[in-house]
Amino acid sequence: MSTDAPNDPKPEETASEHLNIKVTDGNNEVFFKIKRTTQLKKLMDAFCDRQGKAPNSVRFLFDGTRVQGGDSPESLDMQDGDTLEVHQEQIGGGSSF
């Protein structure tokens, strides 16, 4: 469904040009309206800026998988109203190779 079909003049397609995304860190929530094609880096930076967090001190999860800066709502197949979870970034604790 996320294949872009600009020829298709369905009204709901234009309506879903923007998505409402909830970003929450378990304490505070911010609702963002974002274009399907906008890189999520922008959203992450905006959230960090608002919350006063350093961008490299947190990780963003969508459906449990980490969101990269280059992802867009389109590439992650996000729906209107989806939630991004913000968790504290941590180092260590992984298995050593």
């Binding site: 409402n20 505070n28 911010v30 609702f31 963002f32 309206k33 922008k42 905006a46 608002r50």
Partner: peptide, 20 residues
């Protein structure tokens, strides 16, 4: 002022009134 970017609009946010 923070919300001037048209690509990304924060519509509303929930702010905690509790001290971190």
């Amino acid at each position: 002022r923070k919300n001037e970017d048209s690509d990304l609009v924060a519509t509303s946010s929930i702010m905690s009134l509790k001290c971190p």
